[in-house]
Design a binder for these strands. Sequence first.
DNA 1: GGTAGACCTGGACGC
DNA 2: GCGTCCAGGTCTACC
Length: 295
Amino acid sequence: MILTLSVCSPFSLSAVVRSHGWVRLAPFGTDARSGGLTRVERLDSGRVVELLVREAASGVSVEVQDRLTAAEQEQVIAKMTWMLGLKQDFSAFYALARDDPKLAHVEERAQGRVLRCPTLFEDTIKTILTTNTSWAGTIRMVEALVSEFGDPSPADPARHAFPTPDRLASTDEETLRSSVRLGYRAPYVLELARAVALDELDLESLKSANIPTAELRKRLLAIKGVGEYAMANLLMLLGRYDFIPVDSWALKMVSHEWHGGQPVDRSEVEAAFEHWGMWKGLAYWFWDWSYTGEA
DNA sequence: GGTAGACCTGGACGC
DNA sequence: GCGTCCAGGTCTACC
């Protein structure tokens, strides 16, 4: 069956998919034939479905092989609306970006949305697994976590949904270290899964929490394994752009963009985008960096 | 509040 | 094939 979802214009599915690396992390994927976004998802009913998302004339279409109940359809629509930011409006950002040659492209390309997971739990785990490792390491750790603990897809048992907090909470640190090879991140993932599974931490409520960004920042930093970089990355995914996820790449880019290749620190990255105010994070994310790292 | 050192893994490199 | 070095953020202890 096919579900059709409306979007807030301008919208580009490929812009969302290419907004960062999440599409390369299981259980996301791309369909070689159609070029669409794929996702293996476990619904509240317990059913595991494969979703194929494509751009449609009036928005996006979501193809599911199974016949879903009304409740399941509603859930797929809600998840997809969040993941693709279908209702997000960037007109205020575009109005400012028009005047800057380094960002003048964003409106035309419909950039601004960042692909996110259906749950903040999954986004947080994945963000922790991006820290202090290479991108190849992140892909490997997420793949191992998903294939080890995620429910398999009936259509293709080689593919799995992202594990639930309960399932991860039921494992132990040694398994996460030796089998999934999370290294020192294992206790962070386990502690987070257990806190969510035991309802000690309601991460999902933060998606709609009407609280100042400073308070949200404090709550995210209270999660073990989430530091300044991870916190800013999660805030971006939550639609708050007041902070910049400063990692080694950001330091390199800002160094070459404004400081002639001289080493810079976090404060200089933040200073470079300070005048973008509440859009700071987005301005940094979609900036047209001239430095490519080539000699 | 700022800083040093430890935490793990995988890739690059030299032997 | 083996050993060493390095890159990548966060935490903890200490000042």
